[in-house]
Design a protein around this nucleic acid. Structure first.
Lengths: 172, 172
DNA sequence: GTAGTGTTACTCGGATAAATATTGTCCGAGTGACATCGG
DNA sequence: CCGATGTCACTCGGACAATATTTATCCGAGTAACACTAC
């Protein structure tokens, strides 16, 4: 029961990218510097988020990352599953079938009760994460957090975001 | 987001020990054979459960393990926390403080919103696990599972449990 | 002055090592049961 | 026959490797901006 370090970084980056306006992008190196992380390692996680369709990446100068869809349609569950993998934390190995006397398959058609209970708990976990939209996280941060912190982060975003001239579709 | 293999084994062992009557004990080697696991490795997890106060161990011949308290007072959360550790899966590294301009501590008195959301989800997970009592797991198994499986497991318990002389020696 | 072109610098992306946690195995300490011996 | 005693086998417990996963790093492919040259 341990989440990787990268989950925290991924969520923070996504929240920061939610602050960039329109189709502008922000380089991964800037976010790495912002959070004091290894640029190369952060890139790996951002790449994973891109592969999962949460972020979009633009190569070349003035390139970087941006959200692939509005922050209202991105949940913490999306990010966690992308970084940590989609499979459940508890995986039933069906060790009951290796029991004292292995009966034939007809005795194991009903699912293992332990597995059911564990999956039920994990579903509650995922539901709670799915209810946390990235836009909510950002909104609460802007309204509740210390104004100095908000101002500093907004200034950082303004300073490092790279507007896209030939942007195809999105305009704020 | 991955639970260790030992969690499944620990829960199955606890469920099996719930079937042991009175103060009788069951050797770890028997449970290892029952589930097709390495005896030495299973002992490690059972030892952890003992250290956490969930199981009791009796050394010597006719020794083994038994539940330290009634199955009604043991939840899946107890077992999971004992095996996987009590700390939360998501640990906030406060990377927000390593941001662009590190403000003084007064700007970070409010907790990180991301951490709050993650902990809220994990609390839901733990609540669900805490609601799953070991006695419920066993009861549902006895009533719902295939009768052949129940009979086989009961026979196995009867065959391998070691009654303790210094306590109420129940003979079935 | 303007358009074309070559260079350059900056970006992401994947392949490659180090560190850490998990899994698996082994041997030793301790204890109750059993057989033996003496009364 | 009954009790004391020494030996033994069986138990858990912690220390020691092997493996898998996570973390961290480096170098390469691609692209748009920039500077330069020619017209």
């Amino acid at each position: 029961m341990k989440l990787g370090e990268g989950v925290e970084a991924a969520i923070h980056c996504a929240a920061m990218l939610a602050g960039v306006e329109g189709a502008a992008t922000m380089p991964g190196a800037a976010m790495a510097e912002a959070f004091g992380l290894s640029p190369s390692y952060l890139l790996k996680h951002l790449n994973t988020l891109t592969a999962s369709g949460i972020l979009e990446s633009v190569p070349g100068p003035s390139g970087g990352y941006r959200l692939a869809r509005p922050a209202e349609r991105i949940t913490l569950l999306d990010i966690v599953l992308a970084v940590e993998g989609r499979e459940t934390a508890f995986r039933c190995g069906e060790i009951r079938q290796r029991g004292p006397a292995r009966l034939d398959a007809s005795a194991y058609v009903k699912p293992c009760g332990i597995n059911v209970a564990m999956q039920k708990a994990e579903r509650a976990y995922r539901v709670a994460l799915a209810e946390a939209r990235l836009s909510d996280i950002v909104a609460e941060y802007v309204s509740d957090a210390d104004p100095r912190s908000v101002a500093a982060n907004c200034a950082f975003v303004e300073r490092h975001q790279r507007p896209q001239k030939s942007s195809s579709t999105k305009q704020a």
